[in-house]
Design a protein around this nucleic acid. Structure first.
Lengths: 193, 193, 193, 193
DNA sequence: AATGAATGAGCCTTCATTCAT
DNA sequence: CATGAATGAAGGCTCATTCAT
């Protein structure tokens, strides 16, 4: 399996650094190869083309969010608590890797439409888990049964995403994770029964 | 004043059509010139460079949002009502011009970081008005005084934006304006005292 | 009409020189542009792509052969004389332009199959005229009526082509045109009634 | 001797199949290796480089033509009969192996000049035998003593080659061997005393 | 002998911008 | 004011060949 070979991860990591430091449009394949310490051609032994590198960056990292979220969902707590943990996890992962945050919040959005649609596909797996939290909350009486799940999901994700992007655009100069409580309170208030 | 000359608006409108129909990366200056019915070189008599066209597209159209919003703010109603009108206005403008919606929600986001920062500048004028609604609501006791204004603004704008983008990505196949009530209820619930 | 603009012919002529001097696979577009005294991009204002340059080279020059041949066919002489004039014309044109000879006999044949099929299309116009000579000769009793026109055409063209290629491969070190008589006698003997 | 090892012929045969099926420019070394059932690197244990494979393909197959021709020359018949047998043999070998015909008539001609000069060297052995037929014919009074041997050779080979190439380009849709008689008659008429 | 992962040089084409008319 | 022909920099990808195992 290609994904398990060391060079695969090496290139993914190099891509994140190069894109974060140079911007999406200034991230030539040769630059990524150099950062990864491999020849240009080696890239193409592990990725179909440049776009495939970017999709894979997103796929690999998004998996982290989803995996963490799945663990959270298994815990025996309230839906409010699960929502809190989800926001916290999201903020934590990005706060710990500024390069990754820049790439997902700013740079990758400059990609062409085809790539962004592909990225949205990957994102869906994550949003399905958010839906699970919302549905559970409605069932157990914590959340308002009259809310529209799709809209609620868009509010939660839109708020988290907007908050993170603003933080990145302000060059990480305040503590993102410290906002968890406030963001949670705001969102929970909108959702609660 | 350049902005008042007919060709200025002619080029702006051509740009929106070309970008909506061809995508950001397939919108060459020559294509915009052709659509506008002018020579390539003429573009440069009205705009500094390609980026300047795109910024101007956003500027011109964003003004519409802001102007409408200012009128709303002058009306003597509740803050909840003003929030409702703001959402409705936002959805209305974009629902009435699918080309514009595609351009602002999908295509313009593919532009480089410098352009996006400039776009954010323009957006700020609009967000300041949103802040006004929120502050007013807190002062008159409609909104929860403990909420963080910035976060609340991010929630409101993030939700509206995410809702619109989802609608565009679903190819306008449902009625965006009809969502106003639900979106307002959800957001108001999160904000109210 | 693009073909009438001076730069069109300028680029065609540059291409012949560059290909003859560097070989087909070492004739980069940038080299042709430089030889023509224009920018790389200018090439693409006159030609669709690199292959289009090569096809046009052949088209333009093949026209010369065909035009000359048409004049010959109008003259009121024997078919044997027409055959003679055709061979002479063919040898003359190539003997007068060694660059062109190298390109048509050696370099262009290294092109890919698609291009060669296209070249064959162009060649057909020339071969049709040869067929006219052959048919006329059969009708007026000069040529053997039992010969197969297609085979006869292949013999005539194959012999001329093989003779020319051999001459080019021997680096033009003998007089090609001086062979006209012998070649004609050989071919006429095979064709005559 | 390398040539006697099974992998040598295995690779030669694989090359003919790959080139015939994919075209000269789409016949990468890795594809030939795969078809031959060996690793890429193994190719280089038997051949100096890619060009060497192609030269060897031609060498091996050309030997067949020459060997057959030598047998023909030893037979005690007229020169006309020997010419007939030579044409027949040429057509037969290629008609029996369409892959080989495609490779020699179309694909290998796309190779670079250096390779084609090398191929011509190999061809010479074959053409020398043709010269023998011609000289013999002149000596025994069957052929016209005034013909130029070199030109006659070019006529014979040019006609055979042109006939075969046309047949390949027409996708073998008629019987090449059936043309032997007509081609022979045409050529003999040109050569006879 | 055999493998196959790794190498890295090389090139066609696009398109924002200029400037002579 | 308006034109549009000309410019030229820039980069993703392929594939013959090598060499450590």
């Amino acid at each position: 399996m290609k994904k398990d070979k060391p060079k695969y991860k090496q290139i993914i990591d190099a891509a994140i650094i190069v894109i974060a430091e140079n911007g999406y449009h200034q991230s030539q394949v040769s630059k990524i190869a150099k950062q990864a310490g491999v020849a240009d051609g080696t890239i193409y032994l592990y990725f179909k083309n440049k776009e495939d590198i970017l999709i894979s960056v997103f796929e690999e990292k998004m998996e982290m969010f989803a995996e963490n979220l799945k663990v959270i969902l298994k815990e025996n707590t309230t839906s409010s608590e699960k929502l809190f943990k989800m926001i916290e996890n999201h903020f934590n992962v990005l706060a710990e890797d500024h390069h990754l945050a820049t790439v997902t919040q700013l740079e990758l959005r400059q990609s062409n439409l085809a790539l962004r649609l592909r990225i949205n596909e990957i994102l869906k797996n994550y949003l399905v888990l958010l839906d699970t939290i919302l549905k559970e909350g409605i069932e157990n009486g914590e959340f308002d049964p009259t809310i529209d799940i799709r809209l609620a999901r868009q509010m939660v994700f839109g708020t988290i995403d907007e908050t993170t992007t603003t933080w990145v655009m302000n060059e990480y100069k305040y503590d993102l994770v410290a906002l968890t409580d406030k963001v949670h309170r705001l969102l929970f208030k909108g959702l609660k029964a």
